[in-house]
Amino acid sequence: MTLSLRHARVRYGPLEALHGVTLAAPGRGLTVLLGRNGSGRTTVLRALAGTAPLSGGAVVWDGADVTRMPAFERARRGLCLVPERRAVFGSLTVRENLDLAAPAHEPALAAYPQLEPLLPRRAGTLSGGEQRMLALSRALLAPARVVLVDEPAQGMSPAVAARTYELLGSLDVCVVVAEQRLPPALRGRPASVYELRRGTVVFAGEAAEWRRREGLG
């Protein structure tokens, strides 16, 4: 089963951000949306999550048209969106942020041991990379069927970024991430890639195929 956009159009006032985008993310596995700022990759995530309504086309999840399903209902059915900004509750402690996802924190702290000494601190005082770890930990704790993440490794060291993609790649669910460039951590890992430019898909294929196309081996 898949989560897909079919000829999707999204408008922000007079400007159209997506121009008939069609793509599909498998029910299990990693899909990467590539593109520079303004390419439409973040809008694709928001369209899939229901936070950016379509002006045309459809969102289809497990064979059912969910275009008119509100974002909170998609979340209730197992869709988890981790946005690039405001992904944690800054006025709450790290522990309280994790409590909102699940009462048991062990899987999150096993994924990111760096968070354990930060449990009593308010999330708003953390560095950008620490906040990303916390946001992703909450997603890992949630009983999700679909995980959508905008720039998951932003602000992280290369080692933590590699660990993050290892975690995302190990999830037995549909995972869609948006990145400006194909992460080095994905070298040798199976992943579907869609490259967007100015609201349209200019490449669709496997990560290895995209690397060959770009002359990256």
Rank of each mutant, 00 (worst) to 15 (best):
T2V: 12
L5Q: 13
R6Q: 15
H7V: 11
R11F: 02
R11C: 06
G13S: 00
P14G: 12
L15Q: 14
E16F: 00
L18N: 03
G20V: 12
T22C: 01
A25R: 04
T31E: 12
T31S: 14
V32H: 08
L33C: 07
L34K: 08
G35T: 04
R36V: 10
G38Q: 11
G38M: 09
S39G: 14
G40A: 09
R41W: 01
R41V: 09
T43C: 09
T43L: 06
T43S: 15
V44M: 10
A49H: 11
A49V: 10
G50Y: 09
T51Q: 01
A52H: 07
A52E: 12
P53E: 06
L54E: 00
G56D: 09
G57A: 09
A58C: 02
W61N: 05
G63S: 09
G63Y: 10
D65V: 06
V66Y: 05
T67H: 04
R68P: 00
F72S: 12
E73S: 13
A75Q: 08
A75T: 13
R76T: 04
L79P: 01
L79K: 03
E84Y: 06
E84K: 06
R85K: 13
R86P: 01
R86V: 03
T93R: 13
N97Q: 10
L98S: 10
L98C: 09
A102R: 15
P103Q: 08
P103V: 02
A104S: 15
P107W: 09
A108H: 02
A110G: 07
Q114S: 13
L115V: 10
P117Y: 01
L118V: 00
P120C: 01
A123W: 06
L126N: 05
L126H: 04
G128H: 02
G128K: 03
G129Y: 03
Q131A: 13
L134G: 03
A135P: 05
A135S: 11
L141P: 07
L141C: 08
P143C: 13
A144F: 06
R145E: 07
L148C: 02
L148R: 01
L148Q: 00
L148F: 02
D150I: 11
G155P: 04
M156F: 06
P158L: 08
P158E: 02
A159Q: 14
A159E: 15
A159T: 11
V160Q: 12
V160W: 02
V160P: 02
V160A: 13
A161Q: 04
T164V: 11
T164P: 05
T164N: 06
Y165W: 11
L168E: 04
L168W: 03
S170T: 06
L171I: 05
D172E: 15
V175R: 04
V177I: 13
V177C: 14
A178W: 00
E179F: 05
E179P: 09
R181A: 13
L182F: 09
L186T: 12
G188V: 05
G188E: 11
G188D: 07
P190T: 12
S192H: 13
V193H: 05
Y194W: 10
E195P: 03
L196N: 03
R198A: 15
G199P: 08
T200I: 08
T200E: 15
V201R: 00
V202Q: 03
G205R: 05
E206T: 14
E206K: 14
A208W: 14
A208D: 15
E209H: 08
W210Y: 15
R213G: 14
R213H: 14
G217F: 09
